[in-house]
Design a protein around this nucleic acid. Structure first.
Lengths: 332, 332
DNA sequence: GTGAAAGCGCTAACAT
DNA sequence: ATGTTAGCGCTTTCAC
């Protein structure tokens, strides 16, 4: 930078102002242009580290995930966080803990050492987590998870809304006998989707029948066995809302072994919109998408705007529900 | 740090050496312990930015992907790169370009500004890329892609080896009439897997029959239609090697419509080991895994060791083939 | 509108 | 073995 300044015939200070046009100071248009021309010509690049040190604040934000490779979901959140970061001129420092506390501690320290402005902590499936420790002093926001009592701001999928929307696709098609293959896991998705299912039935004036709700492991295998059980019911349901796309995949297999066709003999809707399954099952599966991109995006937006309010007091942390859009394909 | 030094009754310099035990200088065991105790007590954390600035080199490495959310594959590479980075005390700066040249340029600048030691550039599927521009001056290594003439060091999956291994699973089971549903894309995977298939046949003394090689779009849909075509052949093949797991998924559907069972009537092996499909198809699919984790890990290892040799000349860049391990399940 | 100069928090000669 | 001191590359008062 010294060289740029000299070549442009100005002082170091002026060069600095001219280059990153900090509104604070007035540099004549002419000077600025001259300096910028020289900088361009010399291929000058500011040293981000020196800037950060000097400004006594970095332009880093941290993003911690518990698992990055299990599903493409983490990828969507990464994109969301990254897009929001770039919009604000921040650089994302990402780390994956694989749920190892020691690793978590290490990456938290690393981030603190790099003076991150805040961190978004996320999990690959929606769940409750204990308050992340070791991130003292900087704002933290949770994406796809939340803490007991919502002591920290968080953004999570609106499971109930999604469950309701899924079921309403079925009621809208005139189905009255709608089964729900739920998961046997204790998770917000399990309770939320069930709540949504019941709300939708209620809205359609259909009495809730607990015999139509099965629980199983939320995998293809579970969907298969639950599907078989479902077919024993008399009268048979005409539609099924599945906890997730993998369960629907298993249900497809079960229906197939009985020679039943979808959606004629049985309509089915899934949840998660796992592209590789949902879009490529035969017939393609109607489902509800999880808003991972938005979760990441909104979390970081919040962090940057409300995370460390410069004025006024900090807003009350809340658990913000993010809508799960439906994706209609050919199974309904 | 000044405070730590004062409280421990030593100079700033001694404190610095004591804390990050730079072998360069000798600090008595006793002093070091005293300083470290004080640092601990005060909860002192070094400012990474100041360190980087002072050392005139950062501890950053860059990782650029063209797409991070299409499949879980990117996640595996991220893990690989990150693990290697952490082993060497580096921090990963990640960026996703979504294949947008402008974004690429931006993230490249960002990385340069942060003085990254080098960058690994990766693509989500194995392919040739044009030499990334705008990364002048720093070492670059490619993961899952390569340039014309291999001007840059790269690490890519051994497609031919994988294709051969896949086919040999079939020949080992005694199959002699083995079809190959290949992709209609022009990609290293297409040619490589075919080459491997032919090698395996040859090794087993089976003459190559071009009627047994079909090409189709490498999706479920393509596998389905190709599967139907395959069933018209007389005599019918007894085994099929599919370009990827999605094609195998389609083939499963085709076999099912004809009431054929796997592996009794037809053995099938896929490629990619897309967990969500391969492990959950009925029966579970035997396949070949793509070594994404290793691609990321090895790339960064190379970058750190050979990328910028401190002594001797730079090694000749080569395209290193990384093995694709087979995963045997129940379809063979 | 512009320049001089004092740091930001740390490292690494160079002394002692 | 430890202390002194000069930067690293940039930002930002403060004075002109």
């Amino acid at each position: 930078m010294q060289e740029v300044a000299t070549r442009a015939g100005v002082s170091l200070a002026t060069a600095s102002f001219a280059i990153n046009g900090t509104g604070a100071r007035k540099v004549s248009e002419e000077t600025r242009h001259r300096v910028q021309a020289v900088a361009e010509e010399l291929g000058y690049r500011p040293n981000a580290m020196a800037q950060n040190l000097s400004r006594a604040r970095s332009s880093f934000i941290g993003f911690i995930t518990d698992s990055v490779a299990t599903t493409p979901f983490a990828g969507e959140m990464i994109r969301g966080v990254q897009d929001a970061a770039r919009e604000h001129g921040y650089v994302m420092l990402m780390a994956n803990t694989e749920s190892d506390p020691r690793t978590f501690h290490d990456v938290a320290s690393m981030m603190l050492d790099h003076q991150v402005h805040g961190v978004v902590y996320s999990t690959w499936y929606h769940r409750q987590v204990s308050t992340p420790t070791g991130l003292s002093g900087i704002p933290v926001v949770l994406a796809n998870c939340y803490t007991r009592g919502d002591r920290l701001q968080s953004f999570v999928p609106d499971e109930a809304g999604g469950g309701r929307a899924a079921t309403e696709i079925l009621t809208a098609h005139g189905h009255r006998r709608i089964a729900f293959i739920n998961s046997d896991l204790s998770a917000p998705a399990t309770t939320g989707r069930l709540r949504g299912y019941r709300k939708a039935l209620q809205a359609a004036g259909i009495p809730f029948d607990k015999n139509l709700v099965l629980t199983t492991t939320p995998e293809q295998e579970g969907g298969y066995t639950a599907g078989l059980r479902l077919l024993q019911l008399d009268p048979r349901p005409t539609a099924v809302f599945c906890y997730n796309d993998r369960v629907a995949m298993g249900l497809y297999d079960a229906l197939r072994t009985r020679g039943l066709s979808i959606p004629q003999d049985m309509a089915v809707v899934g949840f998660d919109n796992q592209e590789v399954i949902a879009a490529h099952l035969r017939p393609a599966l109607t489902t509800v998408a999880l808003p991972h991109y938005e979760l990441g995006y909104l979390s970081l937006k919040w962090l940057l705007r409300e995370g460390a309010p410069t004025t006024g007091e900090a807003p009350e942390p809340t658990r913000t529900l993010v809508p799960c859009p439906t994706v209609e394909r050919s199974s309904t």
